Amino acid sequence: MQSIPMTVRGEKMLRDELNHLKTVVRPKIIADIAEAREHGDLKENAEYHAAREQQGFCEGRIQEIEAKLSTAQVIDITKIANNGKVIFGATVTILNVETDAEVTYRIVGDDEANIKENLISVNSPIARGLITKEVDDTVNIQTPNGVVEYEIIDVQYV
């Protein structure tokens, strides 16, 4: 099975969600099912069926998280010597050569990606174009609006 790259922050987020599902959500669903059973006929008991459906979603998510954590390769970028190269976990500042617009992204695992927080997936076109490049390199990245030329102006391992 292929290992999934994950930052320390990403692993903590998944472990916290797993803990919440097991200690808060799962017991509440079990209580909801027990309460709905007390209402009698299960065939026409909407609360019972809704609680059973929630139980299915919860158990599925627990299994999904456990599988991801079992194959996770947690990478602590702060423990790697910064040689100016863009790698998984790095925080990269790039400059759009045409517009002079500057943007900073952190390259993270799929589960952590959130463009609103400038966290981009290692599998995104931008990240794939940046990985292995270095400060002062120029890269051409295919975007929905065509190819855009960027210059890497800073790489941090934070």
Rank of each mutant, 00 (worst) to 15 (best):
R61Q: 02
L21F: 07
H20S: 11
I87M: 08
V74R: 04
E149K: 14
V122C: 13
N118D: 03
G129N: 15
D41H: 15
V108T: 06
K43E: 12
A36K: 06
Y157M: 04
T71A: 10
A36Y: 13
Q55A: 09
D16C: 08
I115L: 14
T132S: 09
V103C: 07
R9G: 00
T71K: 12
A51V: 00
K85I: 03
G89N: 02
K79G: 09
A51H: 00
N140E: 11
E112Q: 11
E66P: 04
A127G: 01
V135N: 09
D32C: 02
L69M: 02
D136Q: 12
I65Q: 11
Q54L: 02
H20T: 10
I30F: 12
R52G: 00
S124R: 05
E64M: 05
V147L: 06
D76W: 04
L130F: 01
D137Y: 00
L42W: 06
E66H: 04
D110L: 05
K68F: 08
I33C: 00
P144H: 10
D16M: 11
I33W: 01
L21G: 08
V92S: 02
G84F: 07
T132M: 14
Q73E: 07
I120R: 10
K68R: 08
Q54R: 01
V147I: 08
E44V: 14
R61H: 07
I65M: 05
F88D: 10
K133F: 13
M6L: 03
V148F: 07
E38L: 15
D111S: 10
E64F: 09
M13W: 07
V139G: 04
A101K: 11
I29R: 04
R9I: 01
T93H: 03
P5I: 04
A36V: 01
Q54M: 01
V8M: 12
E59M: 06
G146Q: 11
V122G: 07
L130I: 01
T23N: 05
I141G: 10
Q73F: 09
I77D: 13
D100S: 08
Y157P: 00
